[in-house]
Amino acid sequence: MSDQAEKKLYILRGISGSGKSYLANQIIEKEGGGQIFSADDYFINKNTGKYEYKADKIANAHTWSQNRAWDAMEKGVTPIIIDNTNTKCWEAKPYVEEGLKNGYKVEIQEPTTPWAKNAEELFNRNQHGVPLESIMSMLNRWDDDFTVQSIMKTKSKFKKRDNNKRQKLNQQTITVKTADGEEIRFMSGYVGLFGTKTEELCNDNPTDLVPKDYIVQREKRDGPEHHLTIFFVNEFKTAQNNLEKAYVEEVKDLKTNKKYNNDQESKIQLWMDVLSKVITCDWKNFGVGKVVQGSDETMFQVIDWPSANECRQKLGLGKKDFHLSLGFKARDLHNVPKNVSTLVWNKE
């Protein structure tokens, strides 16, 4: 069997309440793994775990979901499942187009529940509080001709991915060393800490605590190395804009001893050089936490990391539940608490 045939991309479509997410989990069970991506996940409040939809953020939610799916495609994750409403062909085009480029076999599936097109029943069953009027509107704009061919003929209204810019950013990964000898790496989607001390965080865990298939899922996504995410891509601009005011002396000292240009790469390098001076491995390892959403489970090392949180706050960002991902069942759960309240094994 060819690599192309082995990599699968499932495009799901269905109104909220139709059984679409149940179908996604059925595919995961049938395939023995994979990752699910949904724009709805963007609206999950990380502190309460509750769904909080904001109409003015819908474009951000789809961009966020697409970027996560594209990253998984580049890593060869299979199967990838897109759990979105997809009422119109153009809504699915970014995923199908990128999937085909990366050698994925695309399959389209819909829930077969008797109420899948019954507006009143969907209104009663959906868990996100979607109004009846919105459900009826979605059903009215439903594309009956929804195939890979018809999808690819449409023009997507989503912002087109700039592959050249993304590839350039990936190629220009910047790495700096901290005083502890760890590496801080500027990646395409985040800034993270890697190294020996980071790996040691999970060395004391009971060996049978995290299921092996969960670990395999994480390694498919991240590779063998663990990392602690310090910043996400959507936080880069704020952090860079506040850098010189927040760390006056550090920036002055660095600019005295090193030349920085005014281009974006130099700005990132200056930011990274400051991080190497102010972030240390001053953390406390609490143990292993777990969060559950439906049939999904994610397990992680719970970390208190004072220097990193102090840095985030000085740069105008909020405190973060620092954690080191250990594994997950089908997809890594985001925007949920990952602190001591989630512990299933306490290191103390």
Rank of each mutant, 00 (worst) to 15 (best):
D144N: 09
Q26M: 11
E120G: 07
L100N: 11
A69T: 01
K75P: 01
I36W: 12
V96W: 12
T48Q: 10
K57N: 04
R125Y: 04
K50S: 05
E31C: 10
Q127F: 00
I27R: 03
I44A: 08
L132K: 15
T85K: 00
G17K: 00
W115L: 02
D56G: 10
P131N: 09
V148F: 05
F43S: 01
V148L: 03
E97R: 13
A116V: 01
T113Q: 10
A92R: 13
E133F: 08
A92P: 03
R141I: 04
G76S: 07
P111H: 09
Q109P: 06
N60C: 13
P111D: 14
T78Q: 12
T113H: 04
E120Y: 06
P114A: 04
A59Y: 15
E31L: 05
P114W: 01
E107A: 14
F43H: 08
A55C: 02
T78K: 06
L139F: 09
T85R: 09
Y95V: 15
I82G: 00
W70F: 15
T113K: 03
A69M: 08
N102E: 00
S21M: 00
W90Q: 07
N102I: 14
E133R: 13
E120H: 13
K46V: 05
G99H: 03
N102G: 03
S65Q: 10
C89G: 15
Q26F: 04
G99S: 12
N118M: 03
V130H: 03
K88P: 00
A39E: 11
A69Q: 06
D145Q: 09
H128V: 04
I15S: 01
N47P: 01
Y10S: 09
W115Y: 14
A55H: 15
S18E: 03
D41T: 08
F37C: 05
K117H: 11
M73C: 09
I108Q: 04
A92F: 14
A69I: 01
K20D: 07
L132Q: 11
M136Q: 15
I58P: 07
N84A: 12
E98V: 14
E97H: 13
M73Y: 04
S65L: 09
S18D: 11
Y22N: 02
S16N: 14
Y10F: 03
E74M: 02
G76A: 10
N47Y: 13
N25F: 05
P131K: 02
K46H: 11
T85P: 07
N47T: 09
E52N: 04
N126G: 09
